[in-house]
Simulated scan of single mutants.
Amino acid sequence: MSRIRLSDHLNEQEIKEQMGKHGGKREGAGRKRVGITKKVSISLPHGDWERFDEVRGDRSRSEFLRELILKELDS
């Protein structure tokens, strides 16, 4: 069975027009921002990383650190 390709029936301009109707930025789409992102590196001994991952549970590392920092700032 031979496959029919889009390019067999449309010229290059028509392909670009068809492809241009999908994807890209859309207002309101995507993950909502929590705040300003600043990259930070943290060095801990291996055992402390293991404990860190145990204590944070199902939360992401970012979420867990955000909670710890906000708790400290509010106290």
Rank of each mutant, 00 (worst) to 15 (best):
W49T: 14
N11I: 14
L70G: 01
I36A: 11
I4M: 11
R66D: 10
S75V: 11
R59C: 01
I42V: 14
S2Y: 05
V40E: 02
S43T: 13
K38D: 04
G30P: 05
K39C: 06
K25Y: 14
D53M: 03
L10Y: 03
L68A: 05
K16C: 06
G30L: 02
V55A: 15
K38Q: 06
R5Q: 15
S2D: 11
R3W: 15
S7K: 15
D53N: 08
K25E: 09
R59H: 04
R31T: 03
R56Y: 02
S41A: 13
E72D: 03
S43Y: 10
E17M: 09
E72F: 08
S62K: 00
D48N: 11
G28A: 01
D8T: 04
I15P: 00
R66L: 08
R26H: 10
Q13A: 14
M19H: 07
L70D: 09
P45T: 01
K39Y: 08
K38F: 06
D48R: 12
G47C: 03
A29W: 05
W49F: 12
E54L: 15
Q13T: 13
G30A: 01
D53L: 01
V40P: 03
E50L: 08
S75W: 03
G30D: 01
L68R: 03
K16L: 15
I69G: 00
N11S: 09
E50A: 07
S43L: 06
I15C: 04
S2K: 12
K39F: 04
S60C: 00
I42D: 05
I42P: 06
R59T: 00
E72Y: 09
K21D: 02
K38Y: 07
R5A: 08
H22T: 10
Q13W: 11
F52E: 02
T37P: 11
D58N: 13
L68N: 01
V34A: 14
E50K: 02
G20H: 05
E12H: 09
K16P: 03
E54I: 15
E14Q: 15
G35V: 01
S43V: 05
S75L: 07
E50C: 04
E67D: 13
V40F: 08
I36G: 04
R66S: 12
S2Q: 10
R33Q: 12
E17R: 10
L73P: 00
E63P: 00
S62C: 01
N11F: 10
R26K: 09
R56K: 14
D74F: 10
N11A: 06
G23Y: 06
K39N: 13
K25L: 13
S60P: 02
K21F: 04
E27H: 11
V34S: 12
K16N: 13
D53P: 05
K21C: 02
L73S: 03
G20M: 04
L68F: 00
K71R: 11
M19F: 06
N11G: 14
K39A: 11
E27L: 08
E17Q: 13
I42R: 02
P45W: 02
R51K: 14
E54K: 15
D48Y: 13
R3V: 14
E27Y: 10
S41G: 15
R5C: 06
K21H: 04
E63R: 06
R31A: 02
E50V: 11
S75I: 10
N11W: 12
G28K: 00
A29D: 06
M19I: 07
